Amino acid sequence: MSGIKQATFGAGCFWGAEAVFRALPGVVETRVGYAVEVGDESLQIEVVQVDFDPRVLAYSSLIEHFWDLHDPTSVDRQGEHGGVKYRSAIFYHDAGQGEEARLAKVALQESGRLSKPVATVVVPLGRFELADEGHQRYLEKNGLSSCHI
């Protein structure tokens, strides 16, 4: 589809993040998997990759939903799940997304909404590896409405 863009977010457990993003008007498709940071092939982070129509849903709106669906102040942890794979991260696909994500992070930090520093990393997407089919739309397939974290 012409004009469709991609965004990739790490918000801890990817099941819940996928469900939230799937429900947004303007989201065309989602998939969960693992993002690899540029320069560190060993670092794989659980992410949801979102195909969206920017004529309907702005990238900045996706970022706002991302802030709300997890704790962006938590370092390599969401709820009871800890470790690098649960890192809060925005993986940008181009320089424009990178700049917008960095500015959004600064705005969130300066907003006073959070009592701790924003730990979210903003980095270019090195590679995306699709998780197996059992993880795709996991909550939907299992009759669950939300993730426990």
Rank of each mutant, 00 (worst) to 15 (best):
S115V: 11
E64S: 11
F91K: 04
L139E: 00
R87G: 07
R127D: 09
V75I: 15
R55V: 07
D51A: 15
G83V: 05
V36R: 04
F66S: 01
L69K: 06
A131N: 12
V118S: 05
L103G: 03
E29C: 01
E100N: 00
R22S: 14
A17H: 03
Q44R: 15
E100D: 09
G98Q: 10
V48L: 11
V121D: 00
G126W: 06
Q97V: 08
L114K: 13
H81S: 12
V56T: 15
G82T: 15
V36A: 01
L62A: 01
G39N: 03
E80V: 14
E46G: 11
K116Y: 15
V47P: 12
R113D: 13
V38R: 13
K116A: 15
S42L: 13
D132G: 14
G26K: 07
F21C: 09
V123R: 11
W67S: 03
T30I: 03
S42P: 01
G33F: 07
S42F: 00
A104S: 14
D132Q: 13
P54S: 11
E110G: 01
V20P: 01
G96A: 15
V50F: 05
A35L: 06
A119D: 14
H65M: 05
D76H: 14
K85Y: 01
A101S: 12
W15T: 06
V50L: 03
A107M: 08
S88E: 11
E110C: 10
P25A: 11
E46A: 11
A107F: 03
G79W: 10
L24P: 09
Q109R: 09
A101H: 05
I45C: 04
E129Y: 06
E46P: 12
R102W: 08
P25V: 06
L130H: 10
E100Q: 12
T120V: 14
F21A: 12
T120F: 08
T73C: 14
G39C: 03
Q136N: 09
R113L: 15
E29K: 15
K85V: 12
S88N: 12
G98E: 01
V32F: 08
V32S: 11
S115D: 15
F14R: 14
Y86I: 07
F91S: 04
S42T: 15
Y34A: 00
A19H: 13
Y92R: 07
